[in-house]
């Protein structure tokens, strides 16, 4: 673990979570009403974020991470997705209660998002320049050369070489890494305070991934962004984030500072996730895996949903009730019967 920790220390900025509360999420519940039943994609998640803080949200596919991000944007798949409970306080106001018109004022300008697949996140038939200028003019009156100048500046900000020439390019003429940078430029064009990055590097190759992460990190520090980084890769979390939230089956099962979680993971699921990251200082012949599949999120039985796959399950696990959050450290909580 020592490599990881030293990397954390070098990469993580001094700007520590001392800023003001940027976003406070209280008991958020987002359900999907499908024809097969109600899917509790986000089931009572609470957390708060400070200005300039970076939270990593980790979990397997289908655990509700993306739905959590989309809930904050209020862009859930229609008509299935609905926020059924809880509050998302932003600037003292509850986003959940906002009208669609009010949300449009918030999207892009206050809270923005980068999607997973850069290959499909840009309109294929509009030039990069047009897509950028369109974004800029949503919230500003820039025109003519000043508008183009701003677009070039944004491309330069995401380190696109020869940005002025790139304005005329179309998405299909760019590589995946390049496109993901453009998506980043679009997401940041209106200078939002909060950026949700939904697995932005998953579909990039490893070198491009590292570059993109470095870029995202430096932008986050420079713009004092509050970053929610959704990923299934604990390695990335270690390099970018201050805090980690681990999601399992719609619930936040563990939340704490990066070092705490890495040095002292409490939830059996978190332990499994960390063990499944390859390490440089240990010679292993087989990577650890978590047996079984994540549960489908509808008709979950009461009680801990990780129990069927848990190596530490036992008589202490009550079958009728989900464990409440228990504080196990200064800013570290876990929802597991082991700590009740």
């Amino acid at each position: 673990m020592s490599e990881v920790v030293s990397e954390i220390n070098t990469l993580r900025s001094a700007t520590r979570s001392s800023g003001q509360i940027a976003l406070e999420i209280k008991d958020l519940k987002t359900y999907l009403y499908t024809r097969w039943g109600v899917v509790k994609a986000v089931d009572g998640v609470s957390l708060s974020l400070r200005d300039g803080e970076c939270l990593g949200l980790v979990g397997e596919s289908g655990c509700g991470k993306t739905m959590f991000g989309l809930s904050l944007m209020r862009l859930l798949p229609r008509p299935a997705g609905r926020i059924v409970g809880g509050e998302v306080l932003f600037n003292g106001e509850d986003i959940v209660k906002k009208s669609e018109a009010e949300m449009r004022e918030i999207r892009g300008r206050q809270i923005s998002m980068v999607l997973q697949d850069p290959m499909t996140a840009l309109d294929p038939i509009f030039s990069v320049g047009r897509q950028l200028t369109e974004t800029i003019t949503i919230s500003s009156d820039l025109k003519g050369p000043a508008l183009l100048e701003r677009a070039v500046e944004l491309l330069r900000m995401v380190r696109i070489p020869a940005p002025a020439e790139r304005l005329a390019a179309f998405p299909f003429q760019m590589s995946g890494g390049m496109r993901q940078r453009v998506v980043g430029a679009i997401a940041l064009a209106q200078e939002p305070r909060i950026l949700i990055a939904d697995e932005p590097t998953t579909s990039l190759d490893v070198t491009t991934q590292a570059n993109y992460l470095r870029l995202l990190k430096s932008l986050q520090e420079r713009l004092n962004l509050t970053l929610i980084f959704i990923t299934h890769d604990f390695g990335i979390v270690a390099r970018v984030c201050h805090r980690v939230g681990v999601m399992y089956a719609g619930k936040l099962v563990e939340l704490g500072d990066v070092e705490d979680i890495f040095d002292n993971p409490r939830h059996p699921y978190t332990k499994c996730l960390i063990d499944s990251v390859p390490k440089l200082d240990k010679r292993v012949t087989r990577l650890a895996t978590i047996t079984g599949q994540p549960p489908t999120l509808h008709d979950l039985p009461p009680g801990c949903s990780f129990r069927p796959r848990c190596t530490e399950a036992g008589t202490h696990c009550r079958p009728d009730q989900y464990p409440d959050p228990a504080m196990v450290g200064d800013r570290h909580y876990v929802r597991c019967w082991l700590y009740q």
């Binding site: 892009g108 923005s112 697949d117 294929p124």
Partner: peptide, 13 residues
């Protein structure tokens, strides 16, 4: 498609 989602994310009417 994803790019429509992205357009909504940036707050386009």
């Amino acid at each position: 498609s994803e790019f429509i989602k992205m357009l909504r994310i940036k707050g386009l009417p």
